[in-house]
Amino acid sequence: MSVLSNVARWFADPTHWSGPDGIPQRLAEHVQISAESVAIGALIALPIGIALGHYGRFGNLAINISNVGRALPSFGVLVIAFQVFGLGSLPILVALVALAIPPMITNSYVGLREVDADVKEAARGMGYRELARLVRVELPLAVPLVMAGIRTSAVQVVATATLAALIAGGGFGRYVIDGFAQQDYTKLFAGAVLVALLAMATELSLSAVERLLVPRGIRLQRTAGAQRATTFKTA
């Protein structure tokens, strides 16, 4: 019980809400590096996953990427990036982008691949060119899984960004890592609460975006889409 009351007091302390080590600043750092990594990762991964799914080629590659992605120890990847690029946000960005890519490739591949062949035939019969078919027929139908991939990546990136504090990064991980180093269990616990809340907020807000983007015609299978998504947990 004393842990929880100490943590409540920690949150009530105004000094923890301002300055370079305050919660607003740490939140901004955490969200910024995560958002940048997911955005760069999406720019790389989505075209690859969508193209592989659309052409139906290299399916084994797309699936094996998910297995290798799962096997990557995020901690090791971060520290190696740190040894290669030195201090600063570059190593963190590189490691987070690398970890963000596999879930997006696999899920968008599966999403495009699962578009009903009859529907694609019908679109061709109606005179859609290939690009129009991809953009106006296949992608809308694949939105649930494409978005599930982005959401999975984002939650993993937020989680891994916590570890970035080990290589001198900012974000909420600072409280956790410093809490461990100083054996300050109050700070440790408070930091863990913040990290957990941010991960859940990421999950919930991207689920809401997903719901908005899913075309009305296929909303009934929304839960099915979320459950078909390939799971990832690397941090």
């Binding site: 939650v155 937020v158 989680a159 891994t160 916590t162 570890l163 991980g173 956790v176 809490g179 461990f180 440790l188 616990f189 930091g191 863990a192 609460v193 990290v195 957990a196 991960a199 859940m200 999950e203 799971t231 947990k233 941090a235």
Partner: peptide
């Protein structure tokens, strides 16, 4: 599952 492992251990 959503809670990052480092945070779960810390909790």
């Amino acid at each position: 599952y959503t809670i990052p492992s480092l945070a779960l251990f810390a909790l």
